[in-house]
């Protein structure tokens, strides 16, 4: 599904040069559910943005479903993104003028889905995150956690084959977080590939595969990749890596 080879991402600002990703290598198989952990500023969001083709990278190659992304033009990337990829952003990024219904509708509009089908999907997804009754509300009339759930509904409505989630449970209580996790596990069972950034070790532990980004690089835990262990937390892995 995903094949990243020696990806580098350098942000050039007036004062400093930030090496957000360095020689980043990763392969993700179709149908995997991966939890990404790592300290703040380590490059997790940058990795997701590149994976979602929202940002160009400085060097390296990236193949998505066998297509060399570096060779696509902007409209082709938009098409691919539109067909395959769903986003849950770290900062929800709801559109303030649109009510919940219309916010969830956005990706469906660009995909050219008919209005009856849109309605069905939107209502189901809002129901799924427990906001069915608030379809007409505007984002600023909701709490942070509720906004987060709308962002999740919006990503799910597109029924993406590849879901990129940046701390989807960051603003939710543990009960709600577990519910969201269950939803993600459900769509993963139905065949979607999921890459989820999280700071919550408990949630990370539930994911079949854990990776850690440290200082723009994938922490090396090749030791464990052959036999992924559900009980291993990111912390365990880092500790064992340090021992070795």
């Amino acid at each position: 599904m995903i094949k990243m080879n020696n990806i580098n991402k350098v942000y050039q600002t007036e004062m400093v040069q930030t090496h957000a990703l360095r020689d980043f290598n990763l392969e993700v198989e179709q149908g995997e559910f991966i939890a990404v952990t790592g300290p703040s500023g380590s490059g997790k969001t940058t990795f997701l943005n590149i994976a979602g083709m929202l940002e160009p990278f400085s060097s390296g190659t990236y193949e998505l479903d066998g297509i060399d992304v570096g060779k696509l033009n902007d409209n082709q990337r938009a098409d691919l993104r539109n067909q395959k990829i769903g986003f849950i952003f770290q900062g929800f990024n709801l559109i303030p003028d649109l009510n919940l219904y219309e916010n969830v509708e956005v990706p469906l509009r660009y995909r050219g889905i008919k209005s009856a089908e849109r309605r069905k999907r939107i209502e189901r997804c809002l129901e799924l995150v427990g906001l069915g009754a608030r379809a007409k509300h505007l984002p600023q009339q909701l709490s942070g956690g509720q906004q987060q759930r709308v962002a999740i509904a919006r990503a799910l409505a597109g029924e993406p084959r590849f879901l990129l989630a940046d701390e989807p449970t960051g603003n939710l209580d543990s009960l709600m977080a577990r519910q969201v996790m269950e939803i993600l596990e459900e769509i993963n069972r139905e065949g979607a590939t999921i890459v989820m950034v999280t700071h919550d070790p408990e949630l990370a532990r539930r994911a079949p595969r854990n990776i850690q980004v440290v200082d723009g690089q994938l922490a090396d835990f090749s030791l464990y990749q052959g036999a992924p262990n559900k009980e291993q937390t990111a912390g365990d892995i880092a500790a064992r890596a340090a021992e070795a």
């Binding site: 938009a78 993104r81 986003f87 990024n93 990706p107 660009y110 597109g158």
Partner: peptide, 16 residues
């Protein structure tokens, strides 16, 4: 621009 960023991420092309 921020709203446009969201739309682009959700599948809108530059042309759209």
């Amino acid at each position: 621009a921020p709203e446009v960023g969201v739309r682009r991420a959700l599948g809108a092309s530059k042309t759209q």
